[in-house]
Design a protein around this nucleic acid. Structure first.
Lengths: 219, 219
DNA sequence: CCTCAGCTGACATCTACCTGAAAAATGGAG
DNA sequence: CTCCATTTTTCAGGTAGATGTCAGCTGAGG
């Protein structure tokens, strides 16, 4: 399992690296935002350990970048004890978990385990959907004839949310929560708009409307 | 959503209970291992909040018991700040998340939401009704030949109300109360109308009229 | 035969939902 | 930084379906 560690404190980074390496993970170290983004672009990591306080700007940018690209990488945020706002910001921006420094290295390992297991369970190689082939892990969807269909980040998010609860109805508010993790109030018919766009791209029958309740993806 | 809270500290338990109740969850409180196991045996909980440090032995046993029974109940562990080893043990034993005391009650609510959503739609109990298959959790009803029948929100509400008190007679006023939560006076024969609509969609024999008393759903 | 609780078709709203387009925000290139 | 392309959000008009009401009908029970 390949892990990206984003941390500017050399001492801590070293300790984490050796400990995590001992548990059979490969660790790449990035000390600033730039090299972190470079690593993320080039390598397919299974998990990211992210210090939000970096010298060249908030590590929050990195987290946002990952979530914007809709990479399904679990992210664990590392924050100092007094930076509660960071913790909240991290969770809001889509972090999967956080650890408060100084943390116990065994706990770090346990969390890595828990978080990646959480992701692993939901990872499906390919899903068939109304004649389309959906590859969630690669953010790719193809039609019967093999043509690729490109979806924007939000469109993907909605589709994934619907697929996650196949054959049950997903309410608009559930979709909203999936789109805008905590905070970030939305006050328009955004969900409807994205359902509409999905239907335009993938066909009307892809999503069924259950009036007054929500939506359900096709069988 | 029914939650089991396992916590021996009365003050904390009370605070959690009132806060969580306010968010429309039903909360049962167990103060020791014994009563916790008794509750788990008798009731089908949607989530468990578990304090690992109980007077009569580690709450870890409870967690292990749940996982051993292969019950798919999400478990959130509550630990004191200095009990790091508990947290690790909890995560390893299959806890879905943990919170460090003292925790923010809003954060608790957020985590409850996140964890239970991760578990997604719980099991799907199917009810048979006069040749139809009714899936209440999915808002879905199918005929013998597998054809789907679509019901509007109100129609569902009436059907659910009748099914909830199967083999006893449900009065019109009971149905009204179920449809129009408090206030919202109704001035016409709405219930009759919806029974009529149900009959048209599902067949006359689906609901039996008990003149002067109310309705009874078919066997 | 009469009465009255219940049934049901019709209809006038009302509301949820759809969708095209404009406005705002975002990200990347030059 | 500025400009352009794309995505995201908002808005408004239109539509189909859901809802509540009523009036006339039906049939059970006296």
């Amino acid at each position: 399992m390949r892990i990206l560690l984003v941390e500017d404190d050399a001492t801590l980074a070293d300790a984490v690296r050796t400990h995590v390496t001992r548990h059979n993970h490969a660790v790449d170290l990035a000390e600033d935002k730039e090299s972190a983004l470079a690593c993320l672009a080039g390598v397919d990591y299974a998990l990211v350990l992210l210090d939000l306080r970096l010298p060249d700007g908030s590590g929050l940018d990195i987290l946002k970048h990952i979530r914007l690209k809709k990479q399904m990488i679990p992210v664990i945020v590392l924050t100092a004890h007094d930076q509660i706002s960071d913790r909240i910001a991290g969770l809001n921006a889509g972090a999967d978990d956080y650890l408060v420094k100084p943390f116990d290295l065994d706990e770090l390992e346990a969390r890595i385990h828990a978080v990646s297991r959480r992701y692993g369970a939901s990872q499906t190689p390919m899903v068939e959907l109304a004649g389309f082939e959906v590859y969630p892990s690669e953010h790719r969807i193809e039609g019967k004839t093999g043509e690729r269909i490109s979806l924007s980040a939000r469109e993907w998010a909605v589709l994934e949310c619907l697929l996650a609860r196949r054959n049950s109805i997903v309410s608009k508010s559930q979709i909203e929560e999936a789109l805008y993790a905590f905070g970030a109030e939305i006050e328009s018919n955004t969900v409807e708009v994205y359902v509409s766009r999905l239907r335009r791209k993938l066909g009307k029958e892809i999503v069924e409307t259950v009036r007054g309740i929500g939506y359900r993806v096709a069988e």
